[in-house]
Computed example of a mutant assay.
Amino acid sequence: MSKGLEGQRLIVQELRVRPQYWRLKMNGNVVPVVIVTRLGIGVSNPEFYDYRLSLLSHSLARSISALTETKETYWYIAVDVRAPANIEKRIAKAIAPAKAVVWRRNPFFTGLHPVDKDELANKFGDQSIIVMRIDDDDLLHRDFVSEVRKHTSRGAALSAVTFGQGIDLTLSNMAAVDTWYPWIGAALSIQSSASELITPYDMKHTRTAEWIQRRGGDAKEVRSAPMWVRMWHQASDSTEARGFRNAGGTELRVDWAEYGLTSNNLAALQQAAQTVTTSPKRAHSFSRLEMKLAVVKQIRALRAQSKANGVSEKASRELRKDAKRLLEVLYCI
């Protein structure tokens, strides 16, 4: 696990891909799958973590525990540097028997990007790995790992896969409907070299195909059984900003064991969603994540200006002070 500021560098950057470098390197016949979950970067409120851990314990953690293929499969959870001091122990308890490495990220240096690329490069070298993004309140099908390995391009080390068919689950009434959303963030996966890593968090998820193809990679939309479930609840970021969006889908009868859930898990999720305090309705359609990203962009610009050639030491200090003031704004959103 990275400690201190060394693991908190600014890592959102334009990557220059050298075509002659992209050669598929694997550990035997298995490409490692790295599952990354962003849990509250830019959030320090303890109540946030109380609620999200209650969801995580009965949702994604159960899916991870139920995966049928676990060889060379790793789970990383990224939290904020200001998260409660005991968050690592609380996460370990909430996700057991699954295991995960917890990264603490400092948005002043890394923005909202959850991936510690240096640590993954040190762990996997120039081996090709698959990095997948999934939220803490989403679910994965038990066969996801084998499916993503099957559909990533074996002949090209840079490739992206999206499973467009999914399920929307509304926790208030436990109604599940089918949905088709290609290049959704849920279960979005990118295969690249760990030493020049490209992740699903490096670009807007809806632009992934264009982003990957522009760099000479393959982008594939897979039609299959639903590989992911997205949960809608009043305290979710998208729901607060835009309202529920699953109207019109076909209601389904779901075998929740395929996603690792029991009837007790479903009951606990519904209860958690009913007890959370929601925010007042917003006068705009921007999610908290979008607003935080806008602030992070300003912080990054101020930090860059403070380091520019020709800027006096006094002006540089003032720019850094402005950036730190914006950081406090970030935590208030």
Rank of each mutant, 00 (worst) to 15 (best):
C332H: 14
E69P: 04
E290A: 09
N27F: 14
R9Q: 07
V229E: 04
V229N: 01
P97A: 10
L24V: 11
M132Q: 12
W180C: 03
G217H: 03
K150N: 14
V79L: 07
W256M: 09
N173R: 03
Q298G: 05
T162V: 00
Y201M: 10
L252G: 05
M174T: 10
P200W: 08
V145T: 12
F244K: 05
Y201R: 04
R9N: 02
V33C: 04
M291A: 12
D138V: 00
V161A: 08
S59Q: 07
L140V: 12
A304M: 06
Y181C: 12
K281T: 11
S193A: 10
D202G: 07
R52Y: 12
I11N: 07
H205R: 05
A247H: 09
A175S: 15
A247P: 03
S279H: 13
F244T: 10
L67E: 06
L319Q: 10
G260A: 13
D178H: 09
S172Q: 13
K150D: 12
Y21D: 15
N86H: 15
P200D: 03
V276Y: 00
E221W: 08
P280V: 02
G310A: 01
V296M: 08
T73P: 08
V33Q: 07
L289Q: 14
S189L: 00
N122K: 12
Q305K: 01
S238N: 14
S285Y: 00
R288L: 11
E196A: 15
D143A: 15
I184S: 10
N27A: 15
L188A: 03
A94P: 00
S146Y: 05
L5Q: 09
S195V: 04
R133S: 11
Y74T: 13
I64G: 09
R207W: 11
E6K: 09
R288K: 13
L169N: 03
A176N: 06
E290Q: 13
S2F: 02
G185H: 08
P84W: 14
W180Y: 13
W75F: 10
D50P: 07
S195P: 02
L302K: 11
A83W: 07
V222C: 04
E6Y: 04
E210R: 02
F244C: 06
V81A: 14
A315Q: 03
Q165M: 10
